[in-house]
Design a protein around this nucleic acid. Structure first.
Lengths: 193, 193, 193, 193
DNA sequence: TATGAATGAGAATTCATTCAT
DNA sequence: AATGAATGAATTCTCATTCAT
């Protein structure tokens, strides 16, 4: 049983971290379970004590990132006074969360949805959820006369696309991030006027 | 044996089209060479008379799309009088080209760069080339006082990101396209002001 | 395509023979696909050109033996004048067929139904079919006053059980067969009086 | 920790019973040590405190059944006055013992000898021992003119085969047993006349 | 004694690629 | 040029067994 509080939980965290790193580096198909296990300093079989399959592990990782994004976005909006600030705060929260989770971000941004049919579905759903959130803000803002009107859903997706690209831009260049956040935010807020 | 006069050229086109369809449908890793051959009505071995490997075939397809994009963009700009119009025309040309080449677009947009290291590099280069083109316009426009100044390269990438998402949005919804082009163009031109 | 008449057919026969030998020698679980392939002088992958899986191959083999048994029994009965002779001829045909197909017999008699759930079901069905055939004879014979009456189905199974054991007895001792056939037949005909 | 006074004996019995049930249900290869342990309400490792290996446990079970059979047969014969009655009593005892030990019987009857080389050997030896016992009776009976003469060993095996099948017939149908015992006994005694 | 997490050897299956025809 | 059967390396996942606690 090892230590009640650590034990399996720690082992699992090692594996999660290792899996994220390997998937980020190699992509889903090229990632080897043996490599994930090795990098977590466990035997191959141990991987299967914590995940039912390579695929499930991969999907878990993605779910984990999106849970985090949605939580952070929800939290960031709470303190803001008006809809425009909420929108800005949401954008910043998304950028920041991906920034904080390099490996998970790389998986989502680079692997795209090409790897696995189920992954494609999940990613699309996650993105649509986020888009729906943003679209509601856009509609509210345009109803209040704070923004031009238009296809809110399409616009929300354009915002997400631009954000995705900003994150990739960084990821590939390994730039210091914060400097650009402001420019991205302004770009998007201008686009939405 | 197809037409005696056309020879291998037609055969190759069959394979290219089939490959595009299969890669688009299944993704790089899940696509089977045997399936590509079958859909082109040739034997498996015949594939290797026209492509040195599955990977090379895949990379060819991507190169093909980007050559087409750059050609079309160059052509679209020629008739335009000023830099803002050139920019708009470029955006339209990109959207249109991806629109015209559904399968190739699906490969590039959905598979992401995760499938293959070499693919990632090529995609990045292609995107950087396109971004460089746009960035030069942006710089020129801001020097002429027609646009706000800022990190031209980053902005160019944001434009590309938004375009990518617009195309995905369509691809996934199988919408009628043209209607949205105007909104995307306006969104972007506003963002760049 | 190699030769139309030989080619794949021959290759398949090699594999079938090799599979029968290996399954007979090792049992289902201990048999290795690699060993079957090797003994057929082909690469491992070649096995899968002819069988969808190890399991399917195994089941095929058993079906093959039972098809043969039923065919031979049907054929043997045709020439016989009365029901008692038909019964005797059936018994002889079963014994003979298993005798002729050493490897297949070993699979069915030794592996039992323990190896694979699906196999268990098939074996049981096959045995029940044969038992039903015999039971009908028994009923007919007892109706005609040629045999004592009783549970025909149970008796048919007892006959099969004794035959099975006779075959195992030989298989294990590698005895000369024909000598015992008469004794087995007499034992059974006496039992059924 | 069970009862302080009973110690490991009870624990062992739990494991033996559980093993019998799991082997009967799944067959040797498909049975999992972890499942046996779980069903005995102990940890996986505990299994290895009582058995050196899965294989040894399996072999133990079979030995246990055959010890029981031989003991019961010996006991059943003691009270009988003549050789024919002894023979009948032996048959009844065998049928009854298998009847009383459903799980062990299922292992022996269904798994056959295919699972394990060592198991095949043991089963054969056990069966040969029983056959030798019966054969001696047969010889004695035929010497006394009570039965026809013939290959006593072969006949003994035929008897065993028919009994095996009778037991399987029940096992598969979950019939009430006793009714058929008489018919099986008569079938066999007739066969031996 | 008891535990159960960890081990790692082992096996089925897939599929890009080759090459004899 | 075209064919497609054959190849065999490579990879995921399983599970009997061990051993630190």
């Amino acid at each position: 049983m090892s230590h009640p509080a650590s034990g399996g939980v720690e082992r699992r965290q090692d594996l999660v971290r290792s899996a994220a790193a390997v998937f980020a580096r190699r992509g889903y198909e090229r990632a080897r379970v043996a490599e994930i296990a090795k990098q977590a300093h466990v035997a191959t079989g141990t991987f299967y004590l914590y995940f039912p399959s390579k695929e499930a592990c991969f999907l878990d990782l993605v779910a984990q990132l999106y849970d985090l994004v949605l939580t952070r976005v929800a939290h960031a909006r709470q303190g803001e006074p008006d809809i425009l600030r909420k929108l800005e705060a949401s954008i910043t929260a998304v950028l920041q969360t991906f920034q904080d989770e390099r490996d998970l971000a790389a998986i989502v941004l680079l692997q795209g949805s090409g790897s696995l049919p189920l992954m494609a579905e999940r990613l699309r759903t996650a993105e649509d959820n986020l888009a729906a959130l943003l679209a509601q803000d856009l509609k509210e803002a345009s109803d209040a006369g704070l923004m031009s009107s238009g296809d809110a859903s399409l616009r929300a997706h354009l915002v997400i696309g631009a954000m995705r690209e900003a994150l990739l831009y960084r990821l590939r260049r390994q730039d210091e991030p914060a400097a650009q956040d402001a420019e991205v935010r302004e770009f998007l807020m201008r686009a939405l006027r």
